[in-house]
């Protein structure tokens, strides 16, 4: 309906936060993020860090899979590339502000190497190439002992700046969360410009994208490399957060975890990346709590945590695809519309 929303000021029309109310909400949200570790206690802070890392990785996969329509199954191993790069550099005296971008860039470069051959071809080849990369790189993590520490992996000294060490969850939270916010903000920006639109165009209609002047192979590659870069960024933070990594840290299941996150959150939605990452971080926690409860009655129940997690992840993927293909982001939008909290409905 055309009410008062006729946009005459195009700068405002193109803005992400269009109304004062939206800006207030956003400021409140940022304040919440800052306050969280102060009021939340240890466990909440731990979860906050984990969510931050997962949000970055999920946002990356969503760029590749949700927005551009390219399935990547080996997202986890790209986190691994970032994590190993950072771990190795940290152990060789490179400061974190250099190590983290390096990890991201190297993961992006690996993405290009995987992407170049497979993206020339249609459809499913990238999925298979990423699957192959998952196994080959995991093998390298395990076997290239002099660099990766073999099966025992690497331990990572804390990130340090001046005399200040990010050596607790509380401290490292303030490393992770700002980066997560910036990463999400950047991915949101992307889809306000021709680059992001080109990604979506490729997803929605391969050939007419070419006719309007989009170099499909180039943009696919850009999208996949960018997703890999986000994964590498998340992986680097992962190394500084857990402070130890092994070849087991980045299994195929983690890649499926991220696929679940974008599907549950909402394919092709930045808000979806956030909601999906939060939701998926909480699922295993809730499952573990439930199983621990069950273990009071029957101690054997603990062995069910991991298979139960797999079943739930799989069921979430299938269930959301069938019943809510636009994910939590769509549910969120519906709730918002229902309560009509906003002066302008979009």
């Amino acid at each position: 309906m055309r009410l008062g929303d006729f946009v005459t000021d195009y700068r405002a029309g193109e803005a992400v936060l269009r109304t004062p109310v939206q800006r207030v909400w956003f400021a409140a949200f940022l304040a919440f993020l800052v306050a969280l570790p102060f009021v939340g206690g240890q466990y909440i802070t731990f979860l906050g860090c984990l969510v931050g890392i997962h949000i970055i990785a999920t946002a990356g996969l969503n760029i590749t899979t949700g927005f551009t329509g390219l399935i990547s199954i080996g997202h986890a191993v790209l986190l691994g590339v970032g994590a190993y790069t950072v771990a190795w550099m940290a152990n060789n005296g490179v400061p974190f502000w250099l190590a983290i971008p390096s990890g991201a860039l190297l993961a992006g470069a690996v993405g290009i190497v995987i992407g170049i051959p497979s993206l020339r071809i249609k459809g499913l080849y990238l999925a298979v190439a990423t699957l192959a990369a998952q196994f080959v790189l995991s093998y390298i993590f395990r076997e290239w002992e002099s660099v990766t520490g073999g099966v025992r992996g690497l331990s990572v000294p804390p990130a340090q700046i001046g005399g200040f060490a990010f050596d607790s969850d509380f401290r490292v939270y303030f490393l992770i969360m700002p980066i997560a916010v910036v990463a999400v903000w950047a991915s949101r920006n992307l889809f306000r410009t021709r680059v992001g639109r080109a990604f979506v165009a490729i997803r929605d209609r391969d050939l007419s994208a070419e006719v309007i002047g989009i170099d499909i192979v180039r943009y696919k590659l850009m999208s996949f490399a960018l997703g890999a870069l986000y994964a590498g960024l998340a992986g680097g933070l992962w190394a500084y957060f857990f402070r130890s990594i092994t070849p087991e840290s980045f299994p195929l299941q983690l890649g499926i975890f991220y696929l679940a996150a974008i599907i549950v959150g909402g394919l092709g939605s930045t808000l979806g990346s956030i909601l999906g990452a939060i939701f998926m971080t909480l699922v295993p926690e809730v499952l573990r709590a439930m199983v621990n409860l069950a273990a009071i009655v029957s101690p054997a129940a603990v062995v069910y945590v991991s298979p139960l997690r797999e079943i739930v992840f799989g069921a979430l993927i299938v269930g959301f695809l069938i019943f809510e293909p636009h994910g939590l982001a769509e549910i969120w939008r519906r709730i918002r519309r229902f309560f009509a909290l906003w002066p302008f409905r979009s």
Partner: peptide, 24 residues
């Protein structure tokens, strides 16, 4: 009627379900 990519991802989810079920 859903995009092929959705169905492919559903088979990935299915694999996860079956694997978990077998371990259970």
């Amino acid at each position: 009627g859903q995009p092929t990519i959705s169905i492919v991802m559903a088979t990935i989810g299915l694999a996860s379900i079956l694997h978990g079920t077998a371990v259970m």
